[in-house]
């Protein structure tokens, strides 16, 4: 009986909310396809394997930040510090390499530094009861200041080939030597950052959907007091989300610095806005309780493709900022419409 009435109610007013969520993601996906089609028509170089891989590379950083941001936004919070934490983590990794630590543990130290910043955020928010906006704004300044102070605002370069492998390497790369001695790249391979992004996205999506902590993250963002009364350890859940966000920002920082083989303490300014935009475009609600990793991935690719396509079309970086600004406002506006009763 209810099964028969269900499809009808999907279109009715009572079914608006669940239908609205998937509708949002569908419209984001449609936007993504429209963007790809539009840019492909405007520039023939856009729709090529090489450019596709470039987009994958560029999006992997936004994507990693966006995944962490999604966890935080679903708890009903916000993390403004990820751009600065990204820079600090890259700097920590680079300094460790310079101090003679092998690359893998050095990068581990960078990610750990990011996680520590995230944990600090979480503790300030849960123990000192400071709103996430203010707490992470503080961390944004602290981490950026630390990165600049540690390096004297000078980029750390000469980190060696191994440091660049994570950002520049690729799986299944096929290269053959021509008779004239020049290499011929048959297939450029799948970049490691893209593989990393896929692994992290699948892992976090699993965490959110199938694990208790994921359910508690949703419950906390949906109704914090109810979650607490139901026995959810709300503070621990939030601490977890912010620590994950910090760690993923650290990972993104390592990917970015590895691609440049240089640790730039001024890297990642405004990256938090890209990450927030990716999550919100993908359907995460800034009031908490709603959000998916797949949606955030779509959002990240919308931003990545927008940036790349505008570049390919020769649009200036200033105009790009204006466009992305409007996209962010538009996405939050859609969020507002959706939450209106």
């Amino acid at each position: 009986m209810s099964d028969a009435s269900k499809p009808a109610s999907e279109f009715g007013l009572s079914g608006m909310i669940p239908a609205g969520v998937s509708l949002h993601r569908l419209s984001a996906l449609l936007t993504l396809c429209l963007l790809i089609a539009g840019f492909a028509l405007s520039s023939p170089a856009f729709f090529s394997i090489n450019n596709g891989l470039t987009i994958l590379l560029q999006t992997s950083v936004i994507g990693l930040l966006g995944i962490g941001m999604t966890l935080v936004i679903v708890t009903g919070g916000i993390d403004l510090s990820v751009g600065s934490v990204l820079a600090l983590s890259g700097v920590v990794s680079a300094m460790a390499v310079k101090a003679g630590v092998p690359v893998v543990p050095a990068m581990g130290a960078g990610v750990a530094a990011g996680a520590a910043c995230g944990a600090f955020n979480g503790l300030v928010i849960t123990k000192l009861r400071i709103p996430p906006f203010v707490a992470t704004l503080g961390m944004m300044l602290i981490a950026r200041g630390l990165a600049l102070q540690l390096t004297g605002a000078i980029p750390i370069s000469g980190l060696g080939e191994a440091f660049g492998l994570l950002g520049n390497g690729a799986l299944f790369r096929v290269v053959e030597m021509r008779p004239n001695g020049f290499p011929n790249v048959i297939f450029p391979g799948i970049p490691y950052p893209a593989i990393l992004l896929l692994i992290v996205a699948v892992a976090v999506a699993y965490l959110l959907r199938r694990r208790q902590i994921g359910r508690h993250i949703f419950a906390t963002g949906s109704n914090e007091e109810a979650a607490r009364l139901s026995g959810v350890r709300v503070d621990r859940t939030k601490l977890y989300a912010y620590t994950m966000s910090g760690a993923l920002a650290g990972l993104a920082g390592n990917v970015l610095m590895s691609r440049l083989i240089t640790a730039q303490p001024s890297e990642g300014v405004m990256a938090e806005l890209d990450a927030i935009a990716a999550a919100v475009i993908g359907g995460a609600s800034l009031s908490g309780g709603v959000g998916t990793i797949s949606g955030t991935m779509i959002g990240a690719f919308i931003i990545g493709i927008l940036r790349n396509g505008l570049n390919m079309a020769g649009v200036s970086a200033f105009i790009q900022q204006i466009v992305i600004g409007f996209v962010v406002i538009g996405a939050v506006w859609i969020d507002q419409i959706r939450n209106r009763p």
Binding site: F218, A219, G221, N223, A227
Partner: peptide, 18 residues
Amino acid sequence: TLALADHLDAPANLFLGR
């Protein structure tokens, strides 16, 4: 106030925390 998490479904609320 019932203390329900509005975005979750009935089984998720029923077993929330347990």
